[in-house]
Amino acid sequence: MGMTHIEAEGLAIEFPLYHHNARSLKKRLLAGHGRLKAEDSRVVVAALRGLSFRIERGERVALIGPNGAGKSTLLRTLAGIYEPVAGRLILEGEVGSLIDALAGMDPLLTGRENIVLRGLYRGMTEMAASRLATEIVDFAGLGEFIDLPVRGYSSGMGVRLGFALATAMAPDILLMDEWFLAGDADFMARAEERLTRLVTGSEILVIATHDMTIVRKWCTRVIRLEGGAIVADGPVAKILPDGG
């Protein structure tokens, strides 16, 4: 194992749009006779087009760009959810992703049981997951609600549990979607310290965001995506020169 780093070369992701236009078995079968061939032409969205970059240990990278630029897709590709159709991707180091904190939460289970379940998702044993629970319960500060089913939580409580769950890790490479930094002010004050620890503890941070104050505060480098391609890549001061 070498030093923690991310290297992408000509990375491409394409989304075939299968079910919006019933690209079904019928079309497959009828296509053979020639009449429907034109209709059967694949509708493909090129989500990432030949990205090349290298992120070294210690870098905190902000992915910025308009909606649909490919920020989330790139995060998911780095997380190992999407396999590229072309190009190479090397990730050296343990990856932790904060993409959707509520994914995998079971509304019928109590907060505490959900913590254990999340531990299982991460490949822990029940024992290790239960140990994890004590620390998370402390932070989430849900009081006796922690032993009630999650479906009875207010949305704020859900976010608190989700945040506490998601941030209970210490990866080398941290992938983050911006909502993690967009809680209510009261909670963020408490979350701040924990998030700082997580971010500074990891060797590489990649965060997808629209919020330039977040970029200035947390990041050292900006990659601007547009239409699935990199249009700018460099230090924060260079890509966002105007202090506003």
């Binding site: 998911r76 997380a79 190992g80 959810i81 992703s97 993409i99 959707d100 994914a103 995998g104 998702y121």
Partner: peptide
């Protein structure tokens, strides 16, 4: 679907 697109598993 929700899990498959949100976390590597």
């Amino acid at each position: 679907e929700g899990i498959l697109r949100q976390m590597p598993l």
